[in-house]
């Protein structure tokens, strides 16, 4: 049955994609392209669309593939499969965490994890910043003459407003989108 197949495929994607974000890509590709549900072009299209729409890429991919293969029911089955492992494992971890978080060993582990989490988010942030300012994804490929100054300006203003006025980040993102819409069309290509 196609719904069960979709559920099972994306259950595996959810179960084995540690590290979030793009770590899930090769898994999704294996499940979706190798099984013949999508062509490689359609798969690349999902990536582009995922960049443009909110939400985790694994959820975007499972919804998209489900829709293509078996309509809205397929989308629901694939998405459910994708989040099921998270549900089970995270609930278990959360339960254990709140039951035992007074233990000094757990506190010790967390004292090592807190600075690490900051760095992991920082590393993702640098990746996005470089993508926004240079359109590339490596630190080594950038040069000062290739900077997208409009993006740099939007970034600077956004960061200043956030630090200074503590506004809701959602307004910064919306504002940045509106600025992009108002400025980019008037630049020479």
């Amino acid at each position: 049955m196609i719904y069960l197949e979709l559920l099972w495929s994306f259950f595996q994607v959810g179960l084995f994609s540690f590290g979030g974000g793009y770590a899930a890509l090769p898994l999704i590709q294996t499940q979706v392209v190798d099984s013949g549900w999508l062509s490689m072009t359609e798969f690349t299209d999902i990536l582009t669309i995922s960049q443009m729409t909110p939400g985790p890429i694994a959820i975007n991919a499972s919804t998209f593939v489900g829709m293509k293969v078996a309509g809205i029911g397929g989308a629901a089955a694939a998405t459910l499969g994708c989040v099921l492992p998270s549900c089970i494992i995270v609930l278990l971890l959360a339960y254990l965490f709140y039951k035992f978080h007074g233990l000094s060993l757990i506190q010790g582990a967390l004292s090592g994890l807190r600075p690490a989490v900051v760095s992991l988010i920082a590393s993702a942030g640098v990746g996005i910043l470089i993508l926004a300012l240079w359109g590339g994804d490596t630190l080594w490929s950038f040069a000062i003459e290739k900077v997208d100054w409009v993006a740099a300006g939007i970034f600077g203003v956004g960061l200043f407003v956030l630090r200074k006025f503590k506004v809701n980040p959602i307004f910064i993102m919306l504002g940045a989108g509106v600025l992009g819409l108002c400025i980019y069309p008037f630049l020479p290509a």
Binding site: A132, A151, A152, F155, L162, M173, G177, G180, L181, P185
Partner: peptide
């Protein structure tokens, strides 16, 4: 859509950098 996304990318970067500073 593409121009809005390009602007938003810069905004997202600002939001993350701000959060990282706070957490650090």
């Amino acid at each position: 859509v593409a121009t809005v996304m390009r602007g938003m990318q810069a905004g997202v970067a600002a939001v993350i950098v701000d959060a990282v500073i706070k957490m650090a």
